[in-house]
Design a protein around this nucleic acid. Structure first.
Length: 907
RNA sequence: GGACGGCUAGCUCAGUUGGUUAGAGCGACUGGUUUACACCCAGUAGGUCACAGGUUCGAGUCCUGUGCCGUCCACCA
């Protein structure tokens, strides 16, 4: 074996081995219980980020652990076509070539985009293999695959037939750069420092008299159709029904009263521009006002804005209109104003509220979706996200699902040629299209990407084709066991998947019929949802390409190994908390792997001939007669650790899982058990038993770690002969209870007292080491010690004497009857230990140190005495707490006496 | 404006229903090649648990309020 672990020699080889063995295949026909996860499909043209590393490592841990425990496991991978994002990229690239999408035409553009996708796409799936992800690659799905596309359209048609989908001219969020409508969820509110302009409007029937109105958007004044005041605003008793003159594109517009106007904001008077503001649109509808749309789809002003502004960009027009108003004397005031402006998530420009014909979805199964989570059929980890989820559902708005793009699933609606499109009688909605296509034209728009990915858990497994569903095991694997994703897409994706599952899985149910709880259980797409944190850099900033603070995971794999990266990232991922990334943690992951490698190497070297060591072999090699207290203690800790890890996994406490394994492996096994084993390993009766106990611990550690660090554990599994010809993947660490049972059957009965003894002995060893270290005595300087203690404790100490001497690096530890004179001392729970020094101790310094200890003890004693003399405490506190305090007082009193003795002995 | 999360050692974080003297890793410092590992070992220092009240025999933990950081939601022009 190499002196240090070399991940590169291992990782590709083992990954290939697993794939060749077909380890990752999810088989629906197995006799085992199912465990399934669908991957949150990454953007097909994306590359691996640290966020993906975190997310997919967690999924891999869950999948591998399930495989170990005998579940028939499917981790289903795939990619998303990412409508706007991909189309934007392709268009950008076309622009570099001096072309645009209209040059190519719809078909040509799609062809081009597909080629581009196939060339640049799918990189991320290769990167996931590098990370060790155990996806069933043969089942990789892309949202634009023919079968998947059929599912998306089928869902549309079904929803349409059930009356959930309608077409309407409504206010939508319009992105002038992508030139498409967006859903509310794709709009990000950003605080902006803008201006609030106060404009005057002249009263028509009273020239020279003006009303003042505040606005942040003077460029839309030409679209004003009214001014509005609050009906109860006593400041303007007689305004209603009168008219004012619009200062740009002059026209007479009425003054109306509407409840929606805030009396206390600005001047209390609102200009109404129904075409360019959602609130104004609503008010306009209530008052049957005209709609004057002065903006084009690219954000420039049109002829309705007047010749001076026509063709001007909206921001340019803002300046120009302010200038014009100023010249006319209509601009009264201009002040700085902070407000929130909606930005397009993708194009990062302010969106325009815009009136347009779009397809909308009234969400199906909203009530059931609430119940699914509030009743715990679906469990959220951390649980607090349920509140966010429910709040969104309470206030749910219809979903604008049409996008003015080409890259995506084209809406399966045809219109009769030459007839008005807004009349449903001229619509044809189906998968196959009309029988006389020459008389129809298909809707030009595509569906929102999320209107395809919300079907992910069912459409990746053959839905709605009954044969495909059977073949791909939908009924077997569904509901999937766990979903791992970021809370940022709880509305985009998680909530919608739940509603899609409830609506589409199983037999169709008409909209009026509510689903029973039993039916909800069957239809939900997943049982547990684990929300990861967001990975931030060491300064707490979000990782982003523009900041350049996002490390390339592949570089990290190159440097520290995939296992090191996985261990590192998982060890710093507290449940649901954001994660501060630091490369040092990844380095620690690598160091951990190396430690594991070296303990294995040590074990390997102890036996010249590596043998096959199945669990039964190992247990058979343990002779109960030769078990000492160390053995008992480590076996107990092993049993404890197995249980602890199980419990922590059930709560998705991954970093605690690692911490628990770390403590057992590093602190208990390496630092204590193996160190204490060294004398026994030199030979003698206990050797074989000792090695077998090591084997058992090491074997279980490998099994526990395998989900987290799959490569190194598989390699060591073979090197150490644990495999019995079988991959580690198919072996479970089992529970603590199971192991305990196996030990009992083998005649091994771990002594519960051994652990307590061990801990006390450890404390003693630490004190003795400290006595040496403080005097700069090298570890291997075999000095002598004396100790003072009670008989009972002396007995325990005798049992451990030899390993204790070797751990400390001591030549002897003699029991004495009274405090030896002139020696440095430390007082422990076990009694007082004295370091035997021939000469040269600094009596003054020793006195100072002991006096400090004494002071600390006195303080503690005082506080316990106060507590115990307080009758309220002794009466009200539980007896065990009071007893504990009494014992504590006795211990500390004893320590005080010994410290005083030690002090006296110094003088 | 509303909701949620965080504030514990220099840094990153544990601390499970209130109950011994608040822990770990990293970093710092001191010493160390004893038959695995310097990607290691041994040891030392380092904390008014954000702040102010309250409940309690007892509060890092529960309640109220405040501050700072972060996230999400929301039609004040």
């Amino acid at each position: 074996m190499e002196k240090a672990y070399q991940p590169k020699e291992v990782e590709d080889r083992l990954y290939q081995f697993w794939e060749q063995e077909g380890s990752f295949q999810g088989n629906a026909d197995a006799d085992n219980p199912p465990y399934s996860i669908v991957i949150p499909p990454p953007n097909v043209t994306g590359v691996l980020t640290m966020g993906h590393v975190l997310n997919n490592t967690i999924q891999d841990i869950l999948a591998r652990r399930a495989r170990q425990r005998g579940f028939s496991t499917l981790w289903l991978p795939g990619t998303d076509h990412a409508g706007i994002a991909t189309q934007t990229k392709v268009e950008q690239q076309l622009r570099k070539e001096g072309k645009n999408k209209y040059d190519l035409g719809r078909e040509g553009f799609l062809q081009h985009a597909k080629e581009w996708r196939d060339k640049h796409g799918g990189i991320i799936l290769k990167q996931l293999r590098k990370l060790g992800c155990s996806c069933d690659w043969e089942r990789t799905v892309h949202t634009l695959d023919p079968d998947y596309s059929q599912a998306v359209l089928e869902a549309f048609v079904r929803l349409f037939n059930h009356g959930y989908i309608y077409r309407g001219k409504r206010m939508v969020n319009w992105c002038p750069v992508s030139r498409t409508a967006l859903s509310d969820e794709e709009v990000i509110m950003k605080p902006q420092n803008g201006k609030l302009y106060r404009i005057r409007y002249e009263l028509v029937d009273s020239p020279g008299e003006y009303l003042h109105v505040s606005t942040t958007r003077p460029e839309t004044i030409m679209g004003d159709v009214a001014l509005a005041i609050h009906p109860q605003d006593e400041r303007w008793p007689s305004l209603k029904g009168r008219k004012v003159r619009r200062p740009l594109q002059p026209a007479e517009i009425p003054i109306i009263a509407d409840e929606a106007v805030e009396k206390d904001f600005g001047t209390g008077m609102l200009k109404i521009t129904p075409a360019h503001d959602p609130l104004d649109f609503e008010i306009g509808k209530r008052h049957h006002l005209e709609i004057i749309d002065v903006l084009e789809e690219d954000g420039t002003l049109n002829d309705l804005a007047g010749p001076e502004f026509s063709g001007m960009d909206r921001f340019e027009a803002r300046q120009a209109s302010v200038e014009k108003l100023r010249q006319q004397g209509d601009l009264i005031e201009e002040e700085d104003h902070a407000n929130n402006v909606g930005f397009s998530e993708r194009a990062d420009v302010p969106i325009e509220p815009r009136l347009s014909e779009q397809w909308f979805l009234r969400y199906p199964r909203v009530e059931e979706a609430k119940r699914a989570v509030s009743e715990g059929f679906i469990r959220y980890f951390p649980e607090r996200w349920t509140k966010t989820y429910l709040h969104w559902l309470e206030n749910i708005q219809d979903w604008c699902i049409s996008r003015q793009l080409w890259w995506g699933h084209r809406i399966p609606v045809w219109y009769r040629k030459g007839e008005p499109r807004n009349n449903p009688e001229n619509w044809h909605v189906s998968l196959a299209g009309p029988e006389d296509p020459e008389n129809w034209e298909q809707d030009e728009d595509v569906l929102d990407t999320w209107a395809s990915s919300w079907l992910w858990p069912i459409a990746t497994m053959g839905w709605p084709n009954p044969n495909a569903m059977k073949e791909q095991g939908l009924d077997y694997f569904y509901p999937t066991s766990a979903l791992v994703t970021g809370p940022d897409i709880i509305f985009f994706w998680v909530a919608r998947m739940i509603m899609a599952g409830l609506e589409f899985k199983g037999d169709p149910v008409d909209p009026q019929t509510k689903l029973s709880d039993e039916e909800i259980r069957k239809r939900i797409p997943f049982r547990d949802v684990y929300f990861t944190g967001i990975i931030r850099d060491s300064k707490g900033r979000k990782m982003s390409k523009s900041l350049g603070n996002s490390p390339d995971p592949l570089d990290l794999i190159e440097k520290y190994g995939a296992d090191g990266l996985r261990y590192g990232i998982m060890s710093i991922a507290p449940k649901g908390q954001d994660i501060r990334f630091s490369e040092e943690r990844i380095e620690q992951g690598r160091n951990f792997c190396n430690k594991l490698w070296n303990l294995s190497r040590f074990r390997h070297m102890a036996d010249e001939q590596p043998h096959q060591s199945t669990l039964a072999d190992i247990l058979g090699r343990i002779d109960p007669v030769h078990l000492n207290q160390d053995d008992h203690a480590i076996l107990l800790r092993l049993v404890q650790t197995l249980d602890e890890v199980d419990r922590l996994y059930s709560e998705y406490e991954f970093n605690s899982v690692l911490h628990s394994i770390y403590r057992f492996f590093w602190n208990d096994l390496c630092d204590w058990y193996v160190e204490n084993s060294k004398p026994r390993m030199r030979g003698g009766q206990g050797k074989q038993t000792c090695l077998a106990v090591q084997d058992l611990c090491l074997r279980q550690v490998l099994l526990l770690l395998h989900p987290v660090t799959p490569f190194i554990t598989e390699e060591l599994w073979k090197v150490l002969g644990f495999s019995g010809g079988q991959s580690i993947q198919w072996n479970s660490p089992g529970t603590g209870m199971e192991l305990h049972g196996l030990l009992q059957n083998a005649g091994i009965k771990p002594d519960p007292l051994a652990l307590e003894e061990m801990l006390a002995i450890r404390e003693l060893v630490t004190s003795m080491r400290a006595l040496k270290a403080e005097r700069n005595l090298a570890n291997n300087n075999r000095v002598e010690f004396s100790y003072l203690c009670e008989d009972a404790k002396s007995k325990i100490l005798d049992k451990h004497l030899s390993s204790l001497l070797s751990s400390v690096g001591a030549a002897d530890l003699k029991r004495v009857k009274e405090a030896p004179v002139g020696m440095p001392a430390l007082v422990t729970d076990f009694g007082s230990v004295y370091l035997d020094l021939a000469s040269g101790i600094d009596i003054g310094a020793e006195k100072i140190r002991l006096n400090q200890e004494l002071e600390a003890l006195k303080k503690i004693i005082l506080s316990i005495e106060n507590k115990l003399s307080n009758s309220a405490f002794t009466e009200k506190a539980p007896t065990q707490v009071v007893e504990g305090a009494k014992r504590q007082l006795a211990d500390n009193l004893a320590k005080r006496k010994e410290t005083e003795d030690a002090l006296r002995a110094l003088s």
